[in-house]
Nucleic acid binder design. Structure first.
Length: 271
DNA sequence: GCAAATGTTTGGCC
DNA sequence: TGGCCAAACATTTG
């Protein structure tokens, strides 16, 4: 599922390839992903010119001269710059441009494209709740975040909660916690300063490595190519039964809350 | 072949 | 407030 590295890479690609284009029409296959009716969005962005594409956490923000288009790819999303002649069979939305190219937006189950007026995109309920972007936050801010907000929460759900920190998802969290040598069920309040600094460094290292490679192999770039971050780059995530690259212990799949985690029981003790 | 289980994200409910 | 469920599936498993 697209997380910070994929979203950041897509935003860079879109900013380089889409700015200056003019929207000629919008096709809506799945109205439930909009915050307004299809007609309202269509009218709002008719003839809009794309100015800039940025991101915040897992949200892609397209600034146009008529307002903002805010995209969240949810589960297994895909953005593809193509033409009507080469359109894949499945998609939820298509933005047509006046130069005959189009942007296909698809996602597996849930995803959103919200429209907000130019003045304040953060009037959007979902955007308003986001914590700082994970690639923007400083180590000092991160330390403050964990010591002030983190009470009786476990570190995994804390990091996945987008209102604390925006951009981390379930795919990278396993390696992040492994690199920091922290068990996913540790309480945030139990982490010492060294562990918090290690965690910050692990987050940056994991996400930036993938970003530098164009994102994960199971997601496609704006041009339909696979990302360069492969299974070989993953240390322990989804590798149940393999041995820990650090100590050789067999990697375990455990239940944490309502989801699964992959850990090395030796490197990440719970105590 | 078909039903059940699974798993990503987010919002909403107690 | 934290834990659980539901929601617009595709894919694997029995």
């Amino acid at each position: 599922m697209p997380e910070s590295p994929e979203i950041t890479a897509r935003a860079y690609e879109m900013n380089a390839s889409l700015t200056g284009k003019t929207i000629s029409s919008l096709e809506v296959v799945q109205p439930k992903c909009l915050n307004l009716t299809p007609t309202q969005v269509q009218e709002a962005i008719q003839n809009a010119q794309l100015m800039e594409v940025t991101h915040h956490g897992k949200w892609i923000k397209i600034r146009t001269d008529r307002g903002w288009l805010l995209i969240n790819l949810g589960m297994g999303g895909e953005l593809l710059l193509t033409t009507r002649r080469n359109l894949p069979p499945k998609y939820r939305l298509v933005l047509d441009f006046s130069d005959q190219t189009c942007l296909l937006i698809n996602f597996w189950w849930f995803g959103y494209m919200h429209f907000e007026t130019l003045e304040n995109p953060y009037a959007n309920k979902m955007l308003a709740k986001l914590g700082p972007d994970v690639l923007e936050i400083s180590s000092e801010q991160f330390r403050t975040l964990l010591t002030s907000n983190g009470k009786k929460v476990r570190i995994k759900p804390f990091l996945l909660d987008q209102s604390n920190l925006a951009g981390i998802g379930n795919a990278y969290i396993h390696d992040i916690l492994f690199l920091a040598k922290i068990h996913p069920d540790r309480l945030v309040s139990s982490l010492n300063p060294q562990e918090i600094d290690r965690l910050y460094q692990s987050i940056q290292d994991c996400l930036r490595l993938s970003l530098a490679k164009g994102g994960a192999f199971y997601e496609l770039t704006l041009f339909g190519e696979k990302g360069g971050f492969t299974m070989e780059d993953i240390l322990i995530g989804y590798k149940e039964g393999a041995s820990c690259p650090h100590c050789g212990t067999i990697i375990q799949k455990i239940r944490t809350g309502s989801n699964q985690s992959f850990i090395c029981p030796t490197c990440q003790p719970l105590d």
